[in-house]
Amino acid sequence: MSTEVQNTETQVKEKKKSEPLFSKKNIQVLKDPLNDNNPVTVQVLGICSALAVTTQVKPSFIMALSVVFVAGFANLIISAIRNTVPNRIRIIVQLVVIAALVTLVDQTLKAFVYDVSKQLSVFVGLIITNCLIMGRLEAFAMQKKPWPSFLDGVGSGVGYGLVLLFVGFFRELFGSGSLYGFQVVPQWAYDAGYVNNGLMMLPPAALFLIGIYIWIQRALNKDLVNIS
C-alpha cells in the first residue's frame, strides 16, 4: 500500500503526464462527496447556509455555484501554499484566502444578478464561515497536492449543491407552486381548491427536508448509520 502511494507520488513528481488528470483516484476524490461522504448529510458541514437560502431553486442554484467556486479555488490556493504557512497561524491564513474569494463572488453577484444578491443578503458573506470550506481545507488541502485538492473542493461543493437543490426543489414546488420562477402548478388547480403549503416557506421545513433526506440516505446505505 505504502509503496503504491510512493509510486504515484514519484510519478507525479517526475512528469505531470504520467498520471492523467482524471485518473481513477482523482475521479474517486471528485465523486466521493456526492453521496457516500456528502458534506452536508454525512460530515455535518455547511448546514447553516444550506437551509437559509433554499426557499426557491434559483437562489439555491446561485449559492451552490458560489460555493463550488470558493471551495475549489480555496482548496487549490491553500494546497499550493501549504508548506510555507506556519501551523499556528494557518486558520487566519485560510480565512483570509476564503474571505478574498468570497469578496470576489459577492462583487460579481452584485454586478450581474443584483436581485438574487439582494435575496441572498448576508448569506453570501457567510460563505466565509461555511464550515464546509474550512473543514475541507483542514482535512484535505493541508495534506494533499493542489490538483486533487481542487477536485475535492469542487466535489464537496457539488455534493453540497445537490442537497441545496433537493431542498430548494421541494420547498419551491410545494411552497409557491413554481420551479426556478416558472409557474408549474396550473391555475385551474388553484381554482379547484389547491392551496400552497405555507409551512414550506418557513425555516423549519428545510430542517425537516434535510432530516428526511438523511433518513432515506442512511436507510439505503447501512454503512452510514451511527456516524454522528
Partner: peptide, 23 residues
Amino acid sequence: VPDPLKGLGLAMLITGLMGIAFL
C-alpha cells in the same frame, strides 16, 4: 428510534420542531 434516523437525522427533525415552537 429507527436506526437510520439516529443522531444527525433526528437532531434535524427536533431542531425543526423547536423552530416551529419559536415561530
